[in-house]
């Protein structure tokens, strides 16, 4: 697990419409509900469906968070869309002790070779889980499950209330998708 006392900086990569910003928001709300300090924000600007987008979360157990700049040296990167791996260097700036969390069908070994990743790596086929559980390939809540498995940054249960507020009648399916991803995520290195 990442050092839980310090400030943890998480950068989300997705495409407009996949819900990276929602993931970031839900995670921050969960952390705040646990009494931690946290904030979340999108990569600022006009949003376009399908275009690569970023979102950011900082979580701090003991200290209020004062920095508001975008995260360039994250402890964790989360990638919602496998197609981004070949067009963006998603691990740019990732700290040596950090972890990358990918939605992918490929194995960790294969990805290490293709992308030259030397940090820890967590993988899950989130698109398949989302299709099966939600019926749509929207991987935001699914990848929150993978992130929690990879980092323990918040408790899985802390997401229930924020997801329920956000998704209403679709909440249960999103919670199930998150839990499936939590169980299926493989961590390596």
């Amino acid at each position: 697990m990442i050092g839980m006392d310090a400030l943890i900086e998480i950068r989300w990569h997705g495409r407009g419409g996949q819900g990276a910003v929602t993931s970031a928001e839900l995670l921050a709300q969960a952390a705040i509900s646990e009494g931690k300090y946290a904030h979340a924000f999108p990569s600022f600007g006009p949003e376009r469906r399908g275009a690569p987008v970023l979102a950011f979360v900082r979580v701090s157990k003991n200290e209020p968070i004062r920095i508001r700049a975008e995260i360039t040296q994250p402890d964790v990167v989360v990638v919602l869309d496998p197609g981004l791996l070949s067009i963006i260097k998603v691990t740019a700036g990732l700290k040596p002790g950090g972890i990358a969390v990918f939605n992918t069908r490929k194995s960790a070994g294969q990805l290490r070779q293709e992308l030259g990743i030397s940090t820890a790596l967590a993988t899950v086929d989130a698109t398949r889980i989302a299709r099966e559980v939600l019926g749509v390939p929207i991987t935001n809540t699914t990848m929150v499950g993978a992130l929690i498995r990879a980092t323990g940054v918040v408790d899985l249960e802390s997401l229930t209330a924020p997801i329920t507020r956000r998704f209403g009648r679709l909440a249960e399916r999103n919670i199930n998708a998150m839990k499936r991803a939590y169980e299926e995520t493989v961590i390596e290195g």
């Binding site: 979340a40 924000f41 600022f44």
Partner: peptide, 11 residues
Amino acid sequence: DGFHLSHMIEP
């Protein structure tokens, strides 16, 4: 501040 405050989710 636009975005740096307006779009922040925080406690």
